[in-house]
């Protein structure tokens, strides 16, 4: 199974990036094979709007089942949820620590959109 982690760096020692849609890139980690690839998210990082949903589409195309990030907005969250992807929250730790915590069931699962993009 593959999982996606938002990050500002390029490797497993890089920190988990708190933002989802405007993260610099994603590490797509394969739990069985223990290998990863890096998915660039620069286009969405600089998008005027809709960064979250397009980032969600990209991780869905990469066929992940789990996303680990700091905050995930409602549009992206609903898109992921409808596609059967779970979102877990992590912040202030490295990608590899986040993977370990996920594997030991220690990460908090996001049940609903915690940060609303255009709330009025």
């Amino acid at each position: 199974m593959k999982i996606a982690l938002s990050t500002s760096g390029h490797c497993l020692g890089s920190p988990v990036e708190s933002r989802f849609g405007r993260a610099s890139r994603f590490i797509i980690y394969d739990l069985e094979k223990e290998i990863f690839e890096v998915l660039d998210n620069k286009v969405n990082m600089n998008a005027p709007q809709g960064a979250g949903v397009q980032a969600a589409a990209n991780v869905l195309i990469a066929e992940v089942k789990v996303v680990i990030t700091g905050h995930c907005g409602p549009k992206a969250f609903n898109l992921l949820k409808n596609a059967g992807v779970s979102v877990y929250l992590a912040e202030g730790i490295s990608v590899s620590e986040a993977i370990k915590l996920y594997q030991s069931n220690s990460l908090k699962k996001q049940e609903s959109a915690d940060v609303d993009g255009h709330w009025q």
Binding site: S18, H71, V115, D116, G117, H118, W119, Q120
Partner: peptide, 12 residues
């Protein structure tokens, strides 16, 4: 206001 720029200012 309470629009988008305010939300961007306060989240987190």
């Amino acid at each position: 206001g309470i629009g988008c720029p305010v939300i961007s200012s306060v989240t987190g």
